[in-house]
Write a protein that binds this DNA or RNA. Structure first.
Lengths: 160, 160
DNA sequence: CCCATTGAGTTCGAATTTGAACACCGGGTA
DNA sequence: TACCCGGTGTTCAAATTCGAACTCAATGGG
């Protein structure tokens, strides 16, 4: 535990690139989605997750974990999506405590309209900029970092 | 411009890992910094940038660009940091429109106290999880994506 | 049976974020 | 000089975010 091991130049470059890219990219995606489809990026991610789930529905906690967001924030966003008619809440028969978020027809339709432009921008700004090797490195390296953070549960208020 | 080119499995893995890692990591860093030093992660980044600048000061617009945040948000945060005595605003003699944010002694001191723990967590959760090759890929690939987004100025409200 | 404990989801209040609108000032141009 | 423009930074209102506190049930000792 001696003196702190500061980041060297390369590590700093990686760190800054990681954060800068996220900030800029997220804002750009947000702007495009709001402009084109009237939803935020987070809302898009929520709809997309639901769309990929069996019966297009997920429990609140699972969904919160899937989108890496605190429960309270998800609750708020599901409220917004519900007001917009894109998602419906459904109580679980077997467990009275559980609530499912269900993608509606309107939600599915909006997602299908929004997806092409969104994916195109994701490609343009990130995916197609990277070499195949860099893509692997992101998937593997960041995937591992992600897993570890999820694993040591204590520290993550959300997820189960 | 035909049908949309959806992301393949590997691309999806990279994309999800990228976003998930950022979300979890940012929250963890925020918690630690608030706990240990009473500042947010964004505030830490601001102080750190100032600390690395000549005379420990930067113009508002430069700083906004450096931390990839909109001008209005930076203005607010500098206000907070000023109230806390960690940063001071200084008018520019030559250009009356310009404002410099200057790191104070107290700001420098707090940064020095906060840095070791912060860097240690950054290492633990991200840097030390990655192989050297993966680090290079992040620095190069994301660095390039970052540069491109900054370059096509129109779309980024901040930065100049 | 009773009550503490745990887990799911919501609600709450305070802080933050955001783009748009605004105020300010110098530089060019008639 | 008078006037409009472009760039800088702040202010504004609305939406969002976050953790903590809360509600409601089921669980499990004692």
């Amino acid at each position: 535990m001696g003196r702190p091991r500061w980041l060297n130049a390369q590590e700093k470059r990686a760190w800054n690139a990681f954060f800068g890219t996220y900030e800029l990219l997220n804002r750009r995606l947000d702007q495009q989605l709001k402009q084109d489809s009237g939803i935020s990026h987070l809302q898009y991610v929520i709809l997309a997750r639901l769309s990929g789930a069996p019966d297009r529905e997920l429990r609140m906690t699972e969904l919160a974990c899937a989108v890496s967001t605190p429960k309270s924030g998800l609750s708020y966003q599901i409220g917004q999506l519900e007001r917009a008619g894109l998602v419906r809440r459904r109580a679980c028969e077997s467990d009275p405590r559980a609530v499912y978020a269900v993608l509606t027809e309107a939600g599915t339709a909006l997602l299908e309209r929004a997806a092409p432009g969104h994916v195109a921008l994701v490609r343009e700004l990130l995916i197609d900029v990277l070499t195949p090797g860099q893509l692997d490195a992101l998937a593997d390296g960041l995937g591992e970092a992600n897993r570890r953070m999820l694993a040591d549960g204590d520290a993550s208020a959300d997820c189960g």
